[in-house]
Design a protein around this nucleic acid. Structure first.
Lengths: 110, 110
DNA sequence: CTGATTTGCAACCAGATGGTTGCATATGAT
DNA sequence: ATCATATGCAACCATCTGGTTGCAAATCAG
């Protein structure tokens, strides 16, 4: 189950340009904070903070490789969040469709 | 088409507790900023700002009803964002699966 | 017209957040 | 052992952002 608070937290993590740039790189290959710092116009520490934020909501996981700590993008969390949003959106649309139906049945009095 | 920047903007809008509370109310019925202010422990102006943010990314739309301005939750934008995230998540998982396959074929040398 | 209600706008404030620099610590290679 | 490289931690800073108050303007009702 994906709680409502979890969905919000993941969205908050995804609501940042820099974090998306990091995720785009990680989506194509694992990298350490230092490696990412060489690809992006940012300090390693700034990137480390973003990676921590992403890891906190399960969008990324880390593993040691020698003396470096590599990060990997996790599709599972993203997909779970997507499904939760899809459901909520569908519920909103169902409500609107129901209202429209009522409006149409009322206008049948013409 | 849903651009990458759009997805980020929608996520940013969804990354806020108060905004979710507003959306939850709007998901069950249309309301004006003033009406929402009576349901939530917030000033009307605070709510108006949030509604503007939600409207800016297409999660909500407004219409006049007499002297009040009512807001309605739009499922379409939420669903579109969900599909975009789902695709990205799937791409990440495909990459991981491919790597795993390579690893397995290498270990067949035992 | 008058009064009540609702929206709209601007200024202001405190705390969160994205980013930096600097230094300490750990680990791999020679 | 030594040197280079990578991570970890803390302090600090500027800006963004969520929220407030106050007031003006528009609109419906009597």
């Amino acid at each position: 189950m994906t709680s409502s608070a979890q969905v919000m937290a993941v969205c908050a993590a995804l609501g940042d340009e820099t974090r998306w740039q990091i995720l785009e790189r990680l989506g194509r290959g694992d990298h350490s904070a230092s490696a990412l710092a060489e690809m992006l116009p940012l300090t390693r520490q700034a990137i480390a903070k973003h990676l921590a934020a992403l890891q906190a909501v399960g969008l990324v996981e880390s593993y040691r490789a020698g003396r470096e700590l590599r990060f990997r993008a996790l599709g599972a969390q993203l997909s779970a969040t997507a499904r939760a949003l899809e459901e909520i959106g569908a519920a909103w649309d169902r409500r609107l469709a129901a209202i429209k139906t009522v409006a149409e049945s009322l206008s049948e009095q013409d």
